[in-house]
Design a protein around this nucleic acid. Sequence first.
DNA 1: TATTAGCACTCGCTCATCATGAGTGCTAAC
DNA 2: GTTAGCACTCATGATGAGCGAGTGCTAATA
Lengths: 343, 343
Amino acid sequence: MLTERQLMILQIVIDDFIDSARPIGSRAISKKGQIPYSAATIRNDMADLEEMGYLEKTHSSSGRIPSEKGYRHYVDHVIVPSVKESKLNIMKHIINDGFVELEQMVQKTAEILSDLTSYTSIILGPEIFETKFKQLEIVPLSQHTAVAILITNTGHVEHRSFSVPHEMDPADLEKMVNILNDQLHGVPLLQLQEILNTEVLALLKKYVQDFEKAHSYLKTFFFIEQPVKMYIGGISNILRQPEFRDIDKIHSFYTMMENEEELINLINRSQDGIHVTIGNENKLDAIKDFSLITASYWLNEEQTGTIALLGPTRMEYRKVITLLNALSNEMTELLYVWYQENK
Amino acid sequence: MLTERQLMILQIVIDDFIDSARPIGSRAISKKGQIPYSAATIRNDMADLEEMGYLEKTHSSSGRIPSEKGYRHYVDHVIVPSVKESKLNIMKHIINDGFVELEQMVQKTAEILSDLTSYTSIILGPEIFETKFKQLEIVPLSQHTAVAILITNTGHVEHRSFSVPHEMDPADLEKMVNILNDQLHGVPLLQLQEILNTEVLALLKKYVQDFEKAHSYLKTFFFIEQPVKMYIGGISNILRQPEFRDIDKIHSFYTMMENEEELINLINRSQDGIHVTIGNENKLDAIKDFSLITASYWLNEEQTGTIALLGPTRMEYRKVITLLNALSNEMTELLYVWYQENK
DNA sequence: TATTAGCACTCGCTCATCATGAGTGCTAAC
DNA sequence: GTTAGCACTCATGATGAGCGAGTGCTAATA
């Protein structure tokens, strides 16, 4: 168990290291005057803290830096979840700018978040759980090409060009679109495939001549590549962190950021509330010396998305946690209003 | 005027530097055995070349490296435009993968290009000169929101959400869409604004009640933010170049790459044929030690777009020029076919 | 006259040495 | 339990020697 004083020392070491990125020694802590003990006393406590695994040395006679266990303890026990609910009104600002489109709004949010923190922000979702089919349009471009456009109730638009098979009767195509719009209206996107394979298939059989061909075509339209949309802000912020002066680290970081799928997997496993993953707790090698902080936002008790910040383990946890907390609340609120308007 | 031998030496220095990124001295050149002269002879010529500005030293007793003037001479006079037309069939490969959408195709091309060269590739266009209005759809989402979708003859889809003013009559909205689809069919996107302000305005006046409001709304739909689409591949390739070990350079490069507008301006001024801009010839500070090579591709004698490669001044000019030449031809060919199909 | 050999000189690199200072652990005194 | 004192450690930065690839210049050679 940590004594009161040891806890304070741990806190001072972490706060100092977050600020300066350099090891700090007992003498320096004593001189700061935050606690009224001599260097020797502090030294003893620091030795204990190291023995218990909360602090580390970079070399045998260096000052101490926090270990991952140290950060973990700091995050779990020292930081008061700052319930003061600092209202940020980030979202309000964005909406006041006159956006209506959800995607632009989220992208903008990601950018603001990274500006505020100088870390890299990643926002997943809003997921399509609640997104519903609104309308399908097929616009012929030439004799053999057309573009299919799918609109959801949230104003999201997916489109895909395709070539129309020679054998296909234009009348059939139109009939098909009508059937689809009839049948699919209001259907959540997640269930599209299912309904397509049952109810719609039956109808197609009835009304459309070459229904098999049509059906196989439909499958490709409605195959939505990424169920989760990802928005990134401030990638180049890591270049400002002194611990990432190393080209190889930068390279592996950037290549990781280019791999959407990996990132989604990394972040998407997140549970309720704020979640902090420190250094080696992360599954992905490329971010073994990063910390990842995630917060979920909600709609109707279902998790709709995740806001994440990626920065050095030497992260301003207190600030970031407060910020994400506030932001996820705002987004939840906003989505609620949104949903009311668009259901 | 350069002697035969001086030219050969210049060429050797450049080729070696492109390869190794290190200065080379007279002795080393002599030992390579590409030319049968002693180090001393070569030394004298190198001194002359330096005096004339084709070579430089990094310090008083170092070997020589090419100056920008040296590269310029190399590019303008040494490289034979390699008319052997190495057919790459990059495009064919991509199309065989089954894409139909122009945008995906170009994006893929950018990626392949950067993989082939390990530089950063940027492709502009195809520009909208020839892109024509095909259809406008307005899909209401809720009582006060809707999404406007604009489809072009090339299968490109632009969409924008907006809120419907309370005062606006739904019937008016529909009428308006009909008028627009009637009037604008086949109109090149570039002329949209113009026609909107003249012919369409007149019609709106006649048939739609609150035509002023409608008109001002229309303006925002049809304001297309980026007339030119940009596709980038292999940004992180510069991290592999030894001359960019410097974090500050990397930082300024990445922030430049995030600024689309600047990039478009940089590249878009390109003329006919292949164009090489070396180091300080570039307008943008962030790429004063890069070289930029651009090639245009065409449709019906109008420039439709530009392919560019951005790399260190120490670039494999010969390879890159050949490659861009071939690729721009392929794209021109492809667009011709495309256009035939979709006009 | 063009080329080459020879030589003194330059300068960036690498490596070892050294002093400095911020840090440590330990012991003894308060 | 706390502090003072002391010997010790080690990263860091400055200094300098030695090396080697390079130079310019001059004189000899083909």
